[in-house]
């Protein structure tokens, strides 16, 4: 019995509520089922109310919606920019432009955009990265990026 988990790992068997996973699989079931006899069906009775909403597995399909919420993205980007060495944290708002409002030069902007890449675990191609000149640009790019985490 294997299950594709959130991290994409195949686990040897499903961890179900009420099942003691520290014991060998066959002993925890009926007690009568001999080991290594695959023709013996082992049934585990799990009450329906336990099966619903108590399964520790989070199943997610590859078709899942993966775009991030704009509010979360904004606050995370603000935090990244505030923590940047050359930036005065009090000046940072959602509307600032890196060069005009924060006094960064073009090299600093490259570093800020790379810090944002690291935060969301993506790599922004050169053509797109050169266009990001403000917090708003960065937010727009991240919320439209399907792989941003």
């Amino acid at each position: 019995m294997s299950v594709l988990t959130e991290k994409g790992l195949l686990q040897p068997f499903m961890i179900l509520p009420g099942l003691d996973v520290t014991q060998p699989f066959s002993r925890t079931t009926q007690g009568t089922a001999p080991r290594n006899h695959s023709h013996h069906r082992v049934s585990i009775a799990i009450p329906t109310h336990e099966r619903i909403n108590k399964d520790p597995m989070v199943l997610r399909t590859f078709a899942a919606q993966t775009f991030l919420d704009a509010g979360d993205v904004t606050s995370r980007i603000l935090e990244v920019v505030k923590n940047f060495d050359q930036v005065d944290g009090n000046k940072v708002t959602e509307k600032v432009k890196f060069t005009e409002d924060l006094g960064l030069d073009s090299l600093d902007v490259v570093e800020v955009v790379m810090a944002i890449e690291d935060e969301f675990a993506i790599e922004i191609p050169d053509a797109e990265a050169d266009k990001i000149v403000s917090i708003a640009d960065a937010v727009d790019y991240i919320i439209s990026h399907p792989m941003a985490k």
């Binding site: 073009s106 490259v110 570093e111 955009v113 790379m114 790599e123 050169d126 990265a129 050169d130």
Partner: peptide, 13 residues
Amino acid sequence: MTAQALYRNLLRQ
């Protein structure tokens, strides 16, 4: 490649 892009690529490497 712009100077900024060169800087970015060098840092990435």
